[in-house]
Nucleic acid binder design. Structure first.
Lengths: 357, 357
DNA sequence: CTGAAAGCGCTAACAA
DNA sequence: TTGTTAGCGCTTTCAG
């Protein structure tokens, strides 16, 4: 390994000068050039470990996400990477697997590795503990999920609004027994999406739009907590279908659970849009689903991009008051919510596929 | 930040003793206990940057993958993580985006951060350059794709066999004009899968099973290089369908391109299994695709798990000769290749969904 | 078994 | 502008 000292010797200068050349210190052009040439000749690259130790701060930022297999988070990660690309910070991804212990380990590593900062989509609203980082002055930005009472910047999605838009759309499409499958109890994303759903239903009951027959408390009867995973979506959907008076539409609070719900619906022969289904969060393979899926689109990429921007400001030393940025969702209406009375749109034509060869 | 010296002072021992306690050195039980207690009291955690600098080796392993949005690679990453979990190595993920320059940057960082080792799914067979790592003695394991002539351990998939199994299955199902959409020219995975396809077709022509009508050289006419992405699958499929004598089935060499191909087929009204389609590599959302998709399943998780195991042996200092582990694929037959003359299986029943509410 | 001391590669005072 | 020097926190000889 060639060190700064080797370069210094080769260029006939002191190590400090070499350091200055690489860190924007004042060095005469001629000497700087000599140093650069020597460095190139020797294939010198600064040892980032030594830099980190000396500066008490590294040059990587940690991105902690709860589920690397969820396209929402991988898209978010792209946003972070692209934003970080513009500086010389590099991003490392840590998969916490919705597990608070794993998450704690990674947070410890972030500290021990003296990372420049951390972006975290918290595994738990209450049990994720960001205070050790705060205590050591490490910049932190929360994305997607805001841990309770942590003194950090945050970039969130307007979940309540998204939940409202989704539920309103289902109502307007003519569904009357609208269910909601949301995430884990206590998670901010779960609760906010559910709250949007409930508010709209409550208003609808109040103004007479909605007068459900025979269900005591529609606001609670059709709501289910699940786990944001495929299996949770399956279970909740099966549970809903088994009711005496099952729903005729469902608002599913994330993309993975939608997959599970669709599987169950398909097995039960309840094809959309006869049974309405609306997914909070799009999926890359959505184009393959027939009928096409109505979704609330989330700005996953921008979430990451924005968070990385905020973090870099903090790393650069910004002392602005803490801020929370809320990004808006967008309802994208497709065929899976065309209304309870409609038949699914005719598929493009199995007949063609069956043409004799 | 509390350091080893603080702990030493609190426990009334020397820093060296504290270090020994945390690194399995010989220390009397009584003193060790005192040190441990002091460390706990002070909330001491060793500074990994200082450790790395001193030991000239860090405790993170880098995992370089070309596409973080491909479920194949995220699953592989899970395998790596799980295997690494068993030691105290932590994994950081770097997304090279199929871009050799980005990949080079990350390899440089791996070096500069003194990572313990690197697992890499190379962005290019010819242009990925692993020699700087080799030169500095950093352990490297190639997964999925083997860079040309690099002196490293490798964990690969039996692509050729998978390609053969896929093509044989399509032939046996009765398809006669079988196309292949493979990845970028020159990539080992592309070429090997294509080779499997070609070998089987060649044999079929030779022994008379296959006597294509009107196509000069079926082995080439129906093969397309693409980019392993959705868009590439779309383009290649559209190109194939536009032929004078279009194929009646296609073997698509990765999961993402299958999505694109399915979209085009659907738009063209060529529904499987009338038009046969077989995907190399499964997809998590496969259950939603109707008719269900025949796939060659890849051991993505095990690929990662095995690679991490190998890497850890090297990190521990194993001097075994270089080895290449080849993992087997498995054909999973479903409905999308049921044969050219069959109609798609009746869907579970739109009638039920259309029941008046 | 334990402690003293050196030094990993780099940067930031400080002096010149 | 440049060089000298000290030291970031840790591990590892080397003596004892």
């Amino acid at each position: 390994m060639t060190t700064i000292t080797d370069v210094a010797r080769a260029a006939g200068v002191s190590p400090a000068t070499v350091s200055r050349v690489f860190n924007g210190g004042r060095v005469t052009a001629e000497r700087a050039e000599r140093v650069r040439r020597a460095a190139a000749d020797l294939g010198f690259a600064p040892n980032r470990v030594a830099q980190s130790l000396r500066k008490q701060r590294g040059s990587v930022i940690g991105l902690l996400i709860p589920d690397i297999e969820n396209p929402f988070f991988t898209s978010l990660a792209r946003g972070v990477e692209d934003a970080a690309q513009q500086t010389n910070l590099s991003v490392v991804l840590c998969n916490t697997d919705e597990d608070v212990d794993k998450e704690r380990r990674y947070l410890g590593i972030a500290l021990a590795e003296q990372m420049a900062g951390v972006i975290v989509a918290a595994a738990s609203r209450t049990r994720t503990d960001l205070s050790p980082l705060a205590a050591r002055g490490m910049p932190v930005v929360a994305v997607d999920r805001r841990p309770r009472a942590a003194p950090v910047d945050a970039v969130l999605v307007d979940n309540q609004h998204g939940g409202e838009a989704a539920t309103e759309h289902l109502l307007r499409a003519g569904y009357r027994r609208i269910a909601c499958i949301t995430g884990p109890e206590g998670a901010s994303t779960s609760e906010e999406r559910l709250a949007g759903y409930r508010d709209v239903l409550r208003d609808a009951v109040r103004d007479g739009t909605l007068a459900p027959d025979g269900v005591a408390d529609p606001l609670r009867a059709y709501a289910r907590y699940a786990d944001f995973k495929v299996e949770g979506g399956r279970a909740a959907m099966a549970d809903l279908l088994a009711m005496d008076e099952p729903p005729d539409a469902v608002f599913v609070a994330n993309n993975l659970m939608t997959v599970g719900a669709l599987e169950v619906l398909s097995e039960a022969g309840r094809t959309p849009p006869g049974f309405g289904i609306l997914s909070f969060g799009g999926v890359p393979w959505a184009p393959l689903v027939r009928p096409s899926l109505t979704t609330v689109e989330l700005p996953s990429y921008d979430l990451g991009f924005t968070a990385a921007g905020l973090l870099q400001e903090r790393i650069a030393g910004s002392a602005k008051p803490l801020q929370t940025v809320v990004l808006r969702t967008e309802l994208r209406v497709r065929d899976s919510t065309a209304g309870p009375q409609r038949l699914p749109p005719t598929p493009a034509g199995p007949a063609a596929g069956a043409t004799p060869v």
